[in-house]
Every structure is written in structure tokens, then in C-alpha cells.
Design a binder for these strands. Structure first.
Lengths: 120, 120
DNA sequence: CTGCATCCCGCTCGATACTG
DNA sequence: CAGTATCGAGCGGGATGCAG
């Protein structure tokens, strides 16, 4: 093994799918359970109506979230993770765990780097 | 626990750092060992001189890669992962593993979605 | 309430050329 | 060989308005 090329490519594809600012947040909140469109919008500060729509459609397209529309008036649409989407939350949780553990080191490294850059 | 908010934010920060197209590829190749600038450039198809520089500087700033410049002529600069950077490759490998395992499902979901969209 | 189209600004990224 | 600066095209994404 250690076919680094193949690993990189596969990883890069996943990153390309979930690597935008909003996708991870949507997934994170949906990992809690089913939510309606506006519920998600209210829970994710700063996301625009348009981007939430686009993000959800992208996730739905990749089979990570399921969309359930009720033909009522006013309309009601619920989103939840599919089993595939839930399986993704596991490696994502590993990454989040790394983030929690190493954020101080990251910030420290950054501050040190910026300090050195400033004194040039 | 299950403080989803905090998890999302931490995860989103990491994603923001490594979630661009090139960072993961650079990390992947550096996980093999130390490489020179042009060695990386040749190994990563499509990356421009400029983006490799920027990506490397970003990783260096966050303390994930170490830069070692030799004052020779011609110049020679080597890059390698720091221990912090190596620790990141572990959750990244988990993600790559997920990618390898679920790419078929993703592509199938996509094809199904596009098929349904086309027949509307 | 949810979804889609349009406009438009700002930023990213690639190409190019120049320094050490 | 490695890094920086500049410019310009292209796209992401916010605001807004309309439809179902």
C-alpha cells in the first residue's frame, strides 16, 4: 500500500465536496437530527438563504442528506442525514477531535510566525 | 457532551485551513517525506508556481510544515511535515479511507440524482 | 415557507515577468 | 531554483425579487 497518489486523489475529492465553509456546518447540525429549512438557517449564523439552498442540494445530490417535502400550505421541507451521510460524520468527528486538541498549537504557531514576519 | 455548536466551529476552522484543493495534496505528498519545492510542483499536476508558494506558506504559518532553506547557489529549499502536521495526517487518513470506501456510493447517488433531474 | 433567477461586487487563482 | 509583484479573467456568494 502507501499509494499516496491514489489516497491524495480520493481525499481531495472528498475535500472538494465537503470542503466549503457551509457544508460541514450543515452536516454537523443535521447530525443532531432532522431539521427544517429555516431551522437550519437560524442555527447557522451568517449563511444566506441562497447558499443554504445550494449547499443542501449539493449534499442531496451526493446522497448525504435526504429531503422530505410535505405538500402542505405553507410548504414544509425537512432535511436529515442519510446512512451514508451519517457514516461520514465519523471521520469528521475524528477531525473535529483533532481540531479541539490542536487549536491552541495552531494559534500559537500562527502568532509566532506573524511575529517573525512583522519584525522583518 | 454533544456540544454540536462547538464541534462545528472547531471543525469548520480546520476545514477552512485544509479545505482548499491544494493543501491536502501537499500534505499527502509531504507525508511521504521531505521534498524540495520543485519536487512538489512536479508531483502535483496542475498546481501553479504561485499557488504552491502560497499553500506552503500557509501551512508553514500554521506550524504544519517546516521550511528549511540552504544558502547555496542555486538555492535549495526543503519542506517536511512537523510533528503537528504528521498528527493531522491520522484523521485525514480516516477521511481518505472513508473516501475510498464510499466513492462508488457517492457516484451512484449523483448519477441517480442527475437522472431524476433530467427527466423533469 | 421554500426554491429559483438575476444582478453585481469582491476575491481567488493563473499567467507573466522580474529579483536574489 | 525559489520567491515576489502585478494584472486580469472567472467564479463564488450576497442581496433582492418573484413563484409555488
Amino acid at each position: 500500500m502507501e499509494n499516496v497518489e491514489a489516497e491524495c486523489r480520493g481525499l481531495a475529492e472528498v475535500i472538494a465536496r465537503i470542503g466549503d465553509k457551509w457544508t460541514v456546518m450543515v452536516c454537523g447540525h443535521l447530525s443532531e437530527g432532522t431539521h427544517r429549512f429555516n431551522a437550519l438557517k437560524n442555527r447557522i449564523p451568517g449563511i444566506s438563504h441562497r447558499m443554504l439552498t445550494i449547499t443542501l442540494r449539493g449534499l442531496e445530490r451526493d446522497g448525504l442528506v435526504a429531503r422530505k417535502a410535505y405538500a402542505t400550505v405553507p410548504p414544509k421541507v425537512e432535511y436529515c442525514l442519510t446512512p451514508l451521510g451519517q457514516s461520514l460524520t465519523e471521520p469528521l468527528a475524528a477531525l473535529a477531535s483533532w481540531a479541539r486538541e490542536n487549536r491552541p498549537a495552531l494559534e500559537q504557531a500562527r502568532a509566532a510566525f506573524d511575529r517573525r514576519a512583522a519584525q522583518d
